[in-house]
Design a protein around this nucleic acid. Structure first.
Length: 420
DNA sequence: TCATTAATAACCACGAACGG
DNA sequence: CCGTTCGTGGTTATTAATGA
């Protein structure tokens, strides 16, 4: 077992379940140096390219070159339709010569052609950006073979995802098998029971997509932190959070207006526990303590029937705010001190706006003065799921979910970075 | 009735680079 | 020199829907 094999097993224990794609993102990262080597570039040229251009640009231009090659191979007649300028790059005599406008034919090697592409500053054809991207293009052979080997040796167990027939196939899901769990226990020198795991098929049809989406969010965050050289000191998943926060001593109480239309009128007391999808402590030199809440647009936004409904978003904000104000948060997370934020990822811009308005209303309701209100508002941050980077489609993204200006804070309107 | 199509991950074989 | 790892191209498996 290689170090990477062991790391995969630990990840399966940690995440409980991972898709082939997610494992590829974590442990079989694409290598730009290898991609460049495929073009028979000498090592010096590879080093120079990687030093001169951003990873995002190198990857994009390599993809573009491969895309042109594939078209040239399969549908050469399409090349003429790409728009002005590209006949230059994809002249039929390509690989022998490059046709220049009103000039002599200049012989050019594939290597020079590729290098010229990195410098090419005109916009690329729309068709390139609209091309179909398949997850399987991202998953390297090594990843599939490595997982297959771990399965053959009995460490992990696969499960097929249910798919719509028009959807083709989805990536396999992988779980820790009994032998893998025993192996980890041996390595960590603890009892087998101390190694968390889930067995294939034990997630409910609702729980599985929930878990996989949250894994995506966690993986994006991990990769982003790695890229910036920041350290994640602690990560707690929803299972652990549930057991921690559902203790009777951590239940919180708050006052809510009896009639939402009359915020200063009569109030009723309510009680609940904090529910979040993740907690993480990010160390960038400064320390950031965050909860993640992945809102899938299934919960109702506002109270409907207060007595029965404990899943709505407004109630969630009440519990977070009350949990913080009661001092229970500082007790549970002593290293965080006063630092606490709730990062909310939602499905659409429209939903983001309504969740944000709800949050502002609740904070307003629970604050005694302006200072109190301001410090309450700065704890809640919102973004939409489609802006989360990196993903398998945009692994070499220019910015990440941590440094990109994709978040909006409660009480404000402009987009900002969540870390500064 | 029967063949083809659409969709997409897994599978397979091959070459280059790398480390020992 | 050999085994491993990475990237690439091509093939296979699967099923309902579609077409002849």
């Amino acid at each position: 077992m290689s170090d990477r094999d062991v790391a995969v097993l630990w990840a399966l224990s940690d995440f409980r379940v991972l898709s082939t794609l997610q494992i590829a993102m974590l442990f079989w990262r694409p290598s730009l140096a290898h991609k460049l080597a495929w073009w028979h570039l000498p090592q010096t040229a590879i080093d120079q390219v990687l030093a001169s251009y951003t990873a995002h640009r190198v990857n994009e231009r390599l993809d573009f070159a491969k895309w042109l090659l594939a078209i040239r191979r399969k549908q050469p007649e399409q090349l003429a339709t790409l728009g002005p300028g590209f006949d230059l790059l994809v002249d039929p005599k390509w690989f022998g010569s490059l046709s220049l406008p009103e000039q002599q034919q200049v012989p050019i090697t594939p290597q020079d052609w590729l290098l010229r592409l990195f410098d090419y500053d005109q916009p690329l054809p729309q068709a390139f950006y609209k091309r179909r991207r398949l997850p399987s293009e991202f998953i390297s052979t090594g990843c599939k073979q490595g997982l297959r080997r771990l399965f053959d040796e009995g460490y992990i167990e696969p499960e097929e995802q249910p798919t719509r027939l028009q959807q083709g196939r989805k990536p396999l899901l992988w779980y820790l098998a009994k032998q893998g769990r025993d192996t980890l226990a041996g390595i960590a020198n603890v009892s087998t029971n101390a190694i968390p795991w889930k067995t294939a098929g034990s997630y409910s049809p609702w729980g599985l997509p929930h878990r996989l989406e949250n894994n995506d969010l966690r993986i994006s965050t991990l990769l982003a932190a790695n890229r910036h050289g920041w350290k994640i000191q602690r990560w707690i998943d929803d299972d652990q959070l549930r057991t921690m926060h559902s203790k009777k001593s951590e239940r919180v109480k708050w006052q809510r207006p009896k009639d939402p239309r009359k915020p200063n009128g009569e109030t009723v007391e309510e009680e609940g526990t904090v529910v979040a999808d993740h907690y993480f402590w990010l160390d960038t030199g400064k320390n950031w303590h965050n909860f993640y809440e992945y809102d899938r647009g299934t919960k109702t936004v506002q109270y409907q029937e207060p007595e029965q409904n404990d899943q709505d978003f407004e109630r969630k904000i009440y519990t977070f705010t009350a949990y913080y104000k009661s001092g229970l948060y500082a007790q549970r997370y002593p290293e965080a001190g006063k630092s606490m934020r709730v990062l909310i990822v939602t499905s659409s811009e429209a939903r983001l706006q309504s969740l944000k308005a709800i949050t502002e209303g609740v904070v307003n309701q629970m604050s005694n003065n302006d200072k109190d209100r301001e410090s309450g508002l700065m704890r809640y941050w919102f973004t939409t799921a489609d802006k989360i980077r990196p993903t398998w489609e945009d692994y070499f993204s220019e910015s990440t979910l941590l440094d990109g200006e994709i978040w909006v804070r409660a009480g404000q309107n402009q987009l900002r970075a969540v870390i500064w």
